[in-house]
Write a protein that binds this DNA or RNA. Sequence first.
DNA 1: CTCGCTTCCTAAAGGCTTTAAGAATTTGGA
DNA 2: TCCAAATTCTTAAAGCCTTTAGGAAGCGAG
Lengths: 191, 191
Amino acid sequence: MPRAGVTADRLTRAAAEMADEAGLENVTASALARRFGVTVASLYSHVKNVEDLRLRVVALVLDELADRVAAALAGRAGKDALVAFAGAYREFAKAHPGRYAATQPRLDPGKATPEIVAAGRRHTELTRAILRGYGVPEAEQTPAVRLLSSTFHGYVTLEIAGGFAHTGDVDASWSRILDALDVALRNWPAD
Amino acid sequence: MPRAGVTADRLTRAAAEMADEAGLENVTASALARRFGVTVASLYSHVKNVEDLRLRVVALVLDELADRVAAALAGRAGKDALVAFAGAYREFAKAHPGRYAATQPRLDPGKATPEIVAAGRRHTELTRAILRGYGVPEAEQTPAVRLLSSTFHGYVTLEIAGGFAHTGDVDASWSRILDALDVALRNWPAD
DNA sequence: CTCGCTTCCTAAAGGCTTTAAGAATTTGGA
DNA sequence: TCCAAATTCTTAAAGCCTTTAGGAAGCGAG
Protein backbone atom coordinates (compact mmCIF):
# COMPACT_ATOMS: atom_id res chain seq x y z
CA MET A 1 0.00 0.00 0.00
CA PRO A 2 1.60 3.31 -1.10
CA ARG A 3 1.87 6.10 1.41
CA ALA A 4 -0.81 8.69 1.63
CA GLY A 5 1.61 11.59 1.63
CA VAL A 6 0.38 13.24 4.76
CA THR A 7 2.32 16.27 5.89
CA ALA A 8 1.97 18.74 8.71
CA ASP A 9 1.35 21.46 6.14
CA ARG A 10 -1.18 19.44 4.21
CA LEU A 11 -2.98 18.62 7.42
CA THR A 12 -3.01 22.27 8.35
CA ARG A 13 -4.41 23.39 5.02
CA ALA A 14 -6.98 20.62 5.01
CA ALA A 15 -8.06 21.56 8.51
CA ALA A 16 -8.53 25.16 7.42
CA GLU A 17 -10.64 24.13 4.43
CA MET A 18 -12.65 21.76 6.54
CA ALA A 19 -13.30 24.50 9.07
CA ASP A 20 -14.89 26.67 6.39
CA GLU A 21 -16.86 23.81 4.89
CA ALA A 22 -18.10 21.94 7.92
CA GLY A 23 -17.64 24.33 10.79
CA LEU A 24 -14.68 24.56 13.10
CA GLU A 25 -16.27 22.30 15.69
CA ASN A 26 -16.31 19.46 13.19
CA VAL A 27 -12.67 19.52 12.27
CA THR A 28 -11.28 16.74 14.41
CA ALA A 29 -8.23 14.58 14.06
CA SER A 30 -10.48 11.68 13.22
CA ALA A 31 -12.26 13.55 10.48
CA LEU A 32 -8.96 14.70 9.02
CA ALA A 33 -7.60 11.17 9.03
CA ARG A 34 -10.71 10.02 7.17
CA ARG A 35 -10.21 12.78 4.63
CA PHE A 36 -6.68 11.58 3.99
CA GLY A 37 -7.67 7.93 3.91
CA VAL A 38 -5.43 7.19 6.81
CA THR A 39 -5.72 5.97 10.39
CA VAL A 40 -6.03 8.56 13.12
CA ALA A 41 -2.88 7.35 14.79
CA SER A 42 -0.95 8.13 11.61
CA LEU A 43 -1.46 11.81 12.11
CA TYR A 44 0.65 11.70 15.22
CA SER A 45 3.71 11.13 13.08
CA HIS A 46 3.26 14.60 11.63
CA VAL A 47 1.69 16.61 14.35
CA LYS A 48 2.29 16.51 18.07
CA ASN A 49 -1.37 16.56 19.02
CA VAL A 50 -4.61 18.32 18.26
CA GLU A 51 -3.52 21.47 20.04
CA ASP A 52 -0.43 21.60 17.90
CA LEU A 53 -2.54 21.30 14.78
CA ARG A 54 -4.87 24.01 16.01
CA LEU A 55 -1.99 26.40 16.52
CA ARG A 56 -0.65 25.69 13.05
CA VAL A 57 -4.03 26.55 11.62
CA VAL A 58 -4.08 29.80 13.56
CA ALA A 59 -0.68 30.78 12.15
CA LEU A 60 -1.74 29.86 8.63
CA VAL A 61 -4.95 31.83 8.78
CA LEU A 62 -3.38 34.89 10.36
CA ASP A 63 -0.89 34.93 7.53
CA GLU A 64 -3.54 34.54 4.87
CA LEU A 65 -5.51 37.34 6.45
CA ALA A 66 -2.47 39.58 6.62
CA ASP A 67 -1.86 38.89 2.92
CA ARG A 68 -5.35 40.03 2.02
CA VAL A 69 -5.10 43.11 4.15
CA ALA A 70 -1.70 44.02 2.78
CA ALA A 71 -2.96 43.71 -0.76
CA ALA A 72 -5.98 45.87 -0.03
CA LEU A 73 -3.82 48.46 1.64
CA ALA A 74 -1.33 48.81 -1.18
CA GLY A 75 -1.13 52.36 -2.49
CA ARG A 76 -3.76 53.78 -0.21
CA ALA A 77 -3.59 56.25 2.63
CA GLY A 78 -5.86 58.08 5.03
CA LYS A 79 -9.48 57.10 5.21
CA ASP A 80 -9.09 55.26 1.98
CA ALA A 81 -6.61 52.95 3.66
CA LEU A 82 -8.81 52.58 6.72
CA VAL A 83 -11.78 51.51 4.64
CA ALA A 84 -9.71 49.15 2.51
CA PHE A 85 -8.13 47.50 5.53
CA ALA A 86 -11.42 47.09 7.29
CA GLY A 87 -13.15 45.81 4.19
CA ALA A 88 -10.51 43.19 3.50
CA TYR A 89 -10.63 42.08 7.09
CA ARG A 90 -14.39 41.76 7.21
CA GLU A 91 -14.67 40.13 3.80
CA PHE A 92 -12.14 37.52 4.75
CA ALA A 93 -14.01 36.67 7.91
CA LYS A 94 -17.32 36.39 6.11
CA ALA A 95 -15.90 34.36 3.25
CA HIS A 96 -14.02 32.05 5.62
CA PRO A 97 -15.99 31.82 8.84
CA GLY A 98 -14.37 28.58 9.91
CA ARG A 99 -10.88 29.92 9.36
CA TYR A 100 -11.73 33.11 11.16
CA ALA A 101 -13.26 31.21 14.05
CA ALA A 102 -10.07 29.17 14.31
CA THR A 103 -8.33 32.44 15.01
CA GLN A 104 -10.37 33.21 18.08
CA PRO A 105 -8.00 32.53 20.91
CA ARG A 106 -9.53 29.90 23.15
CA LEU A 107 -8.10 31.73 26.07
CA ASP A 108 -4.53 30.65 26.65
CA PRO A 109 -1.81 33.21 26.30
CA GLY A 110 1.61 31.70 26.58
CA LYS A 111 0.55 29.06 24.13
CA ALA A 112 1.21 31.21 21.12
CA THR A 113 3.89 29.81 18.85
CA PRO A 114 6.65 31.98 17.39
CA GLU A 115 4.81 31.78 14.06
CA ILE A 116 1.66 33.14 15.63
CA VAL A 117 3.53 35.90 17.39
CA ALA A 118 5.18 36.85 14.10
CA ALA A 119 1.85 36.93 12.32
CA GLY A 120 0.48 39.09 15.08
CA ARG A 121 3.31 41.51 14.61
CA ARG A 122 2.57 41.61 10.93
CA HIS A 123 -1.00 42.59 11.69
CA THR A 124 0.19 45.28 14.03
CA GLU A 125 2.51 46.68 11.40
CA LEU A 126 -0.24 46.77 8.79
CA THR A 127 -2.45 48.60 11.22
CA ARG A 128 0.29 51.07 11.97
CA ALA A 129 0.50 51.81 8.29
CA ILE A 130 -2.98 53.27 8.51
CA LEU A 131 -2.05 55.50 11.39
CA ARG A 132 0.86 56.91 9.48
CA GLY A 133 -1.59 58.60 7.14
CA TYR A 134 -3.38 60.14 10.10
CA GLY A 135 -0.39 61.54 11.84
CA VAL A 136 -1.15 59.87 15.13
CA PRO A 137 1.87 60.54 17.35
CA GLU A 138 4.26 57.69 17.94
CA ALA A 139 3.41 57.41 21.62
CA GLU A 140 -0.25 57.05 20.79
CA GLN A 141 0.09 54.38 18.18
CA THR A 142 -0.23 51.45 20.53
CA PRO A 143 -3.66 52.46 21.82
CA ALA A 144 -4.74 53.47 18.33
CA VAL A 145 -3.74 50.11 16.91
CA ARG A 146 -5.64 48.43 19.69
CA LEU A 147 -8.71 50.51 19.04
CA LEU A 148 -8.78 49.48 15.42
CA SER A 149 -7.98 45.84 16.07
CA SER A 150 -10.57 45.59 18.80
CA THR A 151 -13.29 47.24 16.80
CA PHE A 152 -12.74 45.23 13.65
CA HIS A 153 -12.40 41.97 15.49
CA GLY A 154 -15.34 42.68 17.73
CA TYR A 155 -17.64 43.76 14.93
CA VAL A 156 -16.86 40.82 12.72
CA THR A 157 -17.20 38.38 15.58
CA LEU A 158 -20.56 39.75 16.63
CA GLU A 159 -21.81 39.97 13.07
CA ILE A 160 -20.89 36.39 12.19
CA ALA A 161 -22.38 35.15 15.42
CA GLY A 162 -25.63 36.83 14.58
CA GLY A 163 -25.20 39.16 17.53
CA PHE A 164 -26.61 42.00 15.45
CA ALA A 165 -29.93 40.22 15.06
CA HIS A 166 -31.27 41.14 11.69
CA THR A 167 -32.16 44.58 12.78
CA GLY A 168 -30.64 47.42 10.87
CA ASP A 169 -28.31 47.18 7.94
CA VAL A 170 -25.00 45.65 8.95
CA ASP A 171 -23.25 47.12 5.95
CA ALA A 172 -24.52 50.59 6.71
CA SER A 173 -23.45 50.25 10.34
CA TRP A 174 -20.03 49.16 9.24
CA SER A 175 -19.74 52.18 7.06
CA ARG A 176 -20.83 54.53 9.83
CA ILE A 177 -18.40 52.95 12.22
CA LEU A 178 -15.59 53.57 9.79
CA ASP A 179 -16.70 57.18 9.57
CA ALA A 180 -16.60 57.40 13.34
CA LEU A 181 -13.17 55.82 13.55
CA ASP A 182 -11.99 58.23 10.91
CA VAL A 183 -13.18 61.09 13.08
CA ALA A 184 -11.46 59.63 16.12
CA LEU A 185 -8.19 59.20 14.29
CA ARG A 186 -8.25 62.63 12.74
CA ASN A 187 -8.92 64.17 16.12
CA TRP A 188 -6.90 61.83 18.25
CA PRO A 189 -7.22 63.18 21.79
CA ALA A 190 -4.15 64.91 23.12
CA ASP A 191 -2.35 63.33 26.00
CA MET B 1 -30.11 7.10 48.97
CA PRO B 2 -31.54 10.64 49.15
CA ARG B 3 -31.70 12.70 46.03
CA ALA B 4 -28.91 15.04 45.13
CA GLY B 5 -31.19 17.94 44.35
CA VAL B 6 -29.92 18.69 40.92
CA THR B 7 -31.73 21.37 39.00
CA ALA B 8 -31.28 23.00 35.64
CA ASP B 9 -30.54 26.27 37.42
CA ARG B 10 -28.09 24.73 39.83
CA LEU B 11 -26.35 23.02 36.97
CA THR B 12 -26.16 26.29 35.12
CA ARG B 13 -24.70 28.19 38.04
CA ALA B 14 -22.26 25.40 38.81
CA ALA B 15 -21.16 25.36 35.20
CA ALA B 16 -20.52 29.09 35.31
CA GLU B 17 -18.45 28.79 38.48
CA MET B 18 -16.55 25.86 37.09
CA ALA B 19 -15.78 27.82 33.93
CA ASP B 20 -14.09 30.54 35.96
CA GLU B 21 -12.25 28.11 38.18
CA ALA B 22 -11.09 25.46 35.76
CA GLY B 23 -11.46 27.04 32.35
CA LEU B 24 -14.40 26.78 30.03
CA GLU B 25 -12.93 23.86 28.14
CA ASN B 26 -12.99 21.77 31.30
CA VAL B 27 -16.62 22.21 32.14
CA THR B 28 -18.11 19.03 30.78
CA ALA B 29 -21.26 17.16 31.65
CA SER B 30 -19.13 14.49 33.26
CA ALA B 31 -17.28 16.96 35.43
CA LEU B 32 -20.52 18.58 36.50
CA ALA B 33 -22.02 15.23 37.41
CA ARG B 34 -18.98 14.48 39.53
CA ARG B 35 -19.35 17.81 41.25
CA PHE B 36 -22.93 16.98 42.15
CA GLY B 37 -22.08 13.45 43.18
CA VAL B 38 -24.33 12.07 40.54
CA THR B 39 -24.09 9.95 37.41
CA VAL B 40 -23.71 11.71 34.10
CA ALA B 41 -26.91 10.21 32.79
CA SER B 42 -28.81 11.88 35.62
CA LEU B 43 -28.14 15.28 34.18
CA TYR B 44 -30.24 14.45 31.18
CA SER B 45 -33.33 14.60 33.38
CA HIS B 46 -32.72 18.29 33.88
CA VAL B 47 -31.09 19.47 30.74
CA LYS B 48 -31.70 18.43 27.17
CA ASN B 49 -28.05 18.06 26.28
CA VAL B 50 -24.74 19.83 26.56
CA GLU B 51 -25.71 22.47 24.03
CA ASP B 52 -28.80 23.26 26.04
CA LEU B 53 -26.68 23.69 29.15
CA ARG B 54 -24.25 25.89 27.28
CA LEU B 55 -27.03 28.19 26.14
CA ARG B 56 -28.38 28.46 29.67
CA VAL B 57 -24.96 29.52 30.85
CA VAL B 58 -24.80 32.15 28.14
CA ALA B 59 -28.14 33.59 29.21
CA LEU B 60 -27.12 33.58 32.87
CA VAL B 61 -23.83 35.30 32.24
CA LEU B 62 -25.28 37.92 29.91
CA ASP B 63 -27.76 38.79 32.63
CA GLU B 64 -25.11 38.99 35.32
CA LEU B 65 -23.02 41.20 33.09
CA ALA B 66 -25.96 43.45 32.33
CA ASP B 67 -26.57 43.76 36.08
CA ARG B 68 -23.05 44.95 36.68
CA VAL B 69 -23.16 47.38 33.83
CA ALA B 70 -26.52 48.74 34.89
CA ALA B 71 -25.25 49.30 38.43
CA ALA B 72 -22.15 51.07 37.18
CA LEU B 73 -24.20 53.24 34.89
CA ALA B 74 -26.66 54.40 37.50
CA GLY B 75 -26.69 58.15 37.89
CA ARG B 76 -24.02 58.84 35.32
CA ALA B 77 -24.09 60.52 31.94
CA GLY B 78 -21.75 61.58 29.18
CA LYS B 79 -18.18 60.43 29.27
CA ASP B 80 -18.64 59.47 32.89
CA ALA B 81 -21.22 56.93 31.82
CA LEU B 82 -19.06 55.70 28.98
CA VAL B 83 -16.12 55.08 31.28
CA ALA B 84 -18.28 53.42 33.92
CA PHE B 85 -19.95 51.12 31.42
CA ALA B 86 -16.69 50.14 29.83
CA GLY B 87 -15.01 49.63 33.18
CA ALA B 88 -17.76 47.38 34.49
CA TYR B 89 -17.70 45.38 31.30
CA ARG B 90 -13.96 44.89 31.30
CA GLU B 91 -13.74 44.18 35.00
CA PHE B 92 -16.38 41.52 34.73
CA ALA B 93 -14.57 39.81 31.91
CA LYS B 94 -11.26 39.86 33.74
CA ALA B 95 -12.75 38.69 37.03
CA HIS B 96 -14.74 35.95 35.32
CA PRO B 97 -12.79 34.81 32.28
CA GLY B 98 -14.58 31.48 32.07
CA ARG B 99 -17.99 33.06 32.24
CA TYR B 100 -16.99 35.64 29.67
CA ALA B 101 -15.58 33.00 27.38
CA ALA B 102 -18.84 31.09 27.62
CA THR B 103 -20.44 34.14 26.09
CA GLN B 104 -18.38 34.01 22.95
CA PRO B 105 -20.80 32.74 20.37
CA ARG B 106 -19.41 29.56 18.89
CA LEU B 107 -20.76 30.64 15.58
CA ASP B 108 -24.38 29.60 15.26
CA PRO B 109 -26.97 32.27 14.92
CA GLY B 110 -30.46 30.88 15.03
CA LYS B 111 -29.49 28.91 18.09
CA ALA B 112 -30.04 31.80 20.43
CA THR B 113 -32.77 31.13 22.96
CA PRO B 114 -35.43 33.72 23.80
CA GLU B 115 -33.59 34.31 27.08
CA ILE B 116 -30.40 35.08 25.23
CA VAL B 117 -32.15 37.37 22.81
CA ALA B 118 -33.74 39.20 25.72
CA ALA B 119 -30.41 39.60 27.46
CA GLY B 120 -28.96 40.92 24.24
CA ARG B 121 -31.68 43.51 24.05
CA ARG B 122 -30.92 44.51 27.60
CA HIS B 123 -27.32 45.11 26.64
CA THR B 124 -28.40 47.16 23.69
CA GLU B 125 -30.65 49.29 25.87
CA LEU B 126 -27.88 49.90 28.37
CA THR B 127 -25.60 50.98 25.59
CA ARG B 128 -28.23 53.29 24.20
CA ALA B 129 -28.40 54.95 27.57
CA ILE B 130 -24.86 56.16 27.03
CA LEU B 131 -25.69 57.60 23.66
CA ARG B 132 -28.54 59.59 25.12
CA GLY B 133 -26.01 61.70 26.98
CA TYR B 134 -24.16 62.37 23.76
CA GLY B 135 -27.11 63.39 21.70
CA VAL B 136 -26.43 60.91 18.95
CA PRO B 137 -29.42 61.14 16.62
CA GLU B 138 -31.93 58.31 16.76
CA ALA B 139 -31.13 57.09 13.28
CA GLU B 140 -27.46 56.80 14.18
CA GLN B 141 -27.91 54.88 17.40
CA THR B 142 -27.72 51.45 15.86
CA PRO B 143 -24.27 51.94 14.38
CA ALA B 144 -23.12 53.76 17.49
CA VAL B 145 -24.26 50.93 19.72
CA ARG B 146 -22.46 48.52 17.47
CA LEU B 147 -19.28 50.56 17.58
CA LEU B 148 -19.24 50.48 21.35
CA SER B 149 -20.20 46.82 21.65
CA SER B 150 -17.64 45.78 19.10
CA THR B 151 -14.85 47.77 20.62
CA PHE B 152 -15.46 46.65 24.18
CA HIS B 153 -15.96 43.06 23.21
CA GLY B 154 -13.00 43.05 20.89
CA TYR B 155 -10.64 44.69 23.33
CA VAL B 156 -11.54 42.45 26.22
CA THR B 157 -11.33 39.35 24.08
CA LEU B 158 -7.92 40.27 22.74
CA GLU B 159 -6.65 41.32 26.12
CA ILE B 160 -7.72 38.14 27.90
CA ALA B 161 -6.31 36.04 25.10
CA GLY B 162 -2.97 37.75 25.49
CA GLY B 163 -3.30 39.26 22.05
CA PHE B 164 -1.76 42.47 23.32
CA ALA B 165 1.47 40.71 24.17
CA HIS B 166 2.88 42.36 27.21
CA THR B 167 3.93 45.38 25.30
CA GLY B 168 2.53 48.66 26.42
CA ASP B 169 0.21 49.32 29.29
CA VAL B 170 -3.19 47.73 28.67
CA ASP B 171 -4.86 50.00 31.19
CA ALA B 172 -3.42 53.08 29.59
CA SER B 173 -4.53 51.89 26.15
CA TRP B 174 -7.99 51.26 27.45
CA SER B 175 -8.13 54.76 28.80
CA ARG B 176 -6.95 56.27 25.52
CA ILE B 177 -9.47 54.23 23.61
CA LEU B 178 -12.25 55.57 25.78
CA ASP B 179 -10.98 59.07 25.09
CA ALA B 180 -11.08 58.32 21.39
CA LEU B 181 -14.58 56.89 21.56
CA ASP B 182 -15.64 59.94 23.50
CA VAL B 183 -14.34 62.11 20.69
CA ALA B 184 -16.13 60.01 18.12
CA LEU B 185 -19.43 60.17 19.98
CA ARG B 186 -19.20 63.89 20.60
CA ASN B 187 -18.48 64.49 16.95
CA TRP B 188 -20.63 61.78 15.47
CA PRO B 189 -20.26 62.16 11.71
CA ALA B 190 -23.28 63.63 10.00
CA ASP B 191 -25.17 61.46 7.61
C1' DC C 1 -50.88 4.78 52.38
C1' DT C 2 -50.34 4.46 47.75
C1' DC C 3 -50.33 6.17 42.93
C1' DG C 4 -47.86 8.57 39.74
C1' DC C 5 -44.29 11.76 38.52
C1' DT C 6 -39.64 12.80 38.80
C1' DT C 7 -34.97 11.76 39.83
C1' DC C 8 -31.32 8.79 39.69
C1' DC C 9 -28.85 4.44 38.39
C1' DT C 10 -26.99 0.66 35.46
C1' DA C 11 -25.84 -0.65 30.90
C1' DA C 12 -24.37 0.17 26.51
C1' DA C 13 -23.18 2.28 22.09
C1' DG C 14 -20.31 5.34 19.61
C1' DG C 15 -16.98 9.17 18.95
C1' DC C 16 -12.69 11.43 20.14
C1' DT C 17 -7.54 11.67 21.58
C1' DT C 18 -3.28 9.65 22.60
C1' DT C 19 0.37 6.14 23.21
C1' DA C 20 2.90 1.79 22.31
C1' DA C 21 4.80 -1.54 19.30
C1' DG C 22 5.53 -3.38 15.05
C1' DA C 23 5.18 -3.70 9.76
C1' DA C 24 5.91 -1.55 5.48
C1' DT C 25 7.92 1.95 2.51
C1' DT C 26 11.47 5.31 1.31
C1' DT C 27 15.87 7.01 0.93
C1' DG C 28 20.56 7.60 0.90
C1' DG C 29 25.03 6.00 1.49
C1' DA C 30 28.36 2.09 0.67
C1' DT D 1 22.74 -1.83 -6.95
C1' DC D 2 21.46 -3.02 -2.41
C1' DC D 3 20.97 -2.78 2.34
C1' DA D 4 20.25 -0.26 6.64
C1' DA D 5 18.28 3.63 8.91
C1' DA D 6 14.56 6.68 9.15
C1' DT D 7 9.95 7.66 8.42
C1' DT D 8 5.16 6.64 7.63
C1' DC D 9 1.45 3.95 8.54
C1' DT D 10 -1.27 0.13 11.02
C1' DT D 11 -3.20 -2.52 14.73
C1' DA D 12 -4.37 -2.54 19.58
C1' DA D 13 -5.74 -0.58 23.62
C1' DA D 14 -6.76 2.74 27.29
C1' DG D 15 -9.37 6.59 28.82
C1' DC D 16 -12.51 10.35 28.40
C1' DC D 17 -16.68 12.27 26.52
C1' DT D 18 -22.01 12.38 25.16
C1' DT D 19 -26.40 10.37 24.64
C1' DT D 20 -30.20 6.94 24.92
C1' DA D 21 -32.87 3.12 26.97
C1' DG D 22 -34.95 0.82 30.70
C1' DG D 23 -35.67 0.15 35.33
C1' DA D 24 -35.58 1.25 40.50
C1' DA D 25 -36.15 4.31 44.14
C1' DG D 26 -37.73 8.70 46.31
C1' DC D 27 -41.40 12.10 47.00
C1' DG D 28 -45.59 14.57 47.05
C1' DA D 29 -50.67 14.70 46.40
C1' DG D 30 -54.81 12.84 47.25
